[in-house]
Simulated assay, not measured.
Amino acid sequence: MEPMKPMKPMEGMRPMEPMKPMKGSEPWWPRDLGEPSTSGGQNDVQYAFFAAAHRLLIRKGGEIATYDSGDHGISGVSQQQSGSSSLTFTSGEGRVDLDALKKV
């Protein structure tokens, strides 16, 4: 029988590589509008509101519709879940139905 040999020293752990930042998605709205004041989405509908341009953009199924928001300062959205898919937006003046805004 052969005598036990000494164990080799353990190697130190190599430092972890720093995490690379995730690549953000490209904006779906036209760049000439700049950054939206607020944006979001629910189910298959996305919205972006551009206060300075008075524009509300809605993207559904890859199609983009543009609305004149008038004096409304859009800050949120709600979508009816059953039957209809109507959108209602929250503004400083209260609730605003999408049907009340002029499509451009």
Results as ranks from 00 to 15, higher is better:
G73R: 14
V45F: 05
K60N: 12
L33F: 05
I64D: 03
G62R: 01
S91M: 01
K8M: 14
P6M: 08
G76L: 06
M16G: 03
Q79A: 10
M1R: 07
E35W: 09
S82H: 08
M4T: 14
S86D: 12
K23N: 08
R14V: 14
D99C: 03
G24H: 09
T38D: 07
Q80K: 11
N43A: 09
E93A: 06
S78W: 10
L101R: 00
D44M: 12
L101W: 06
S86C: 02
D44N: 14
M7C: 04
G24Y: 03
S84V: 12
E26W: 05
S82Y: 06
A51G: 10
F89H: 01
F89Q: 02
F50N: 00
K102E: 15
A48I: 10
P9S: 06
Q46Y: 09
G41Y: 06
N43M: 13
E35G: 01
P21H: 04
T88Y: 11
S39T: 15
T38R: 09
E35R: 07
R95N: 04
D32I: 14
S39M: 11
P18C: 11
P9W: 06
K8R: 08
F50C: 03
L98G: 00
Q81E: 10
E2A: 13
G24M: 13
M13Q: 11
K102H: 11
T90Y: 11
T66Q: 14
G73V: 15
M22S: 00
M4N: 10
G34H: 01
F89W: 05
R31A: 15
S25Q: 12
R14T: 15
M22L: 04
S25R: 14
Q81S: 07
T88P: 04
A51W: 07
L98I: 05
L33E: 02
G76S: 11
K20W: 05
E93G: 00
L98R: 04
P30K: 03
R31W: 08
K20Y: 05
K102I: 15
P15C: 09
K103P: 08
A51I: 06
L87R: 00
K103D: 05
K5A: 14
S78M: 13
K8T: 14
S39Y: 12
Q46G: 04
P9G: 03
P9T: 05
H54A: 14
I64S: 03
G92M: 08
G12I: 13
K23I: 09
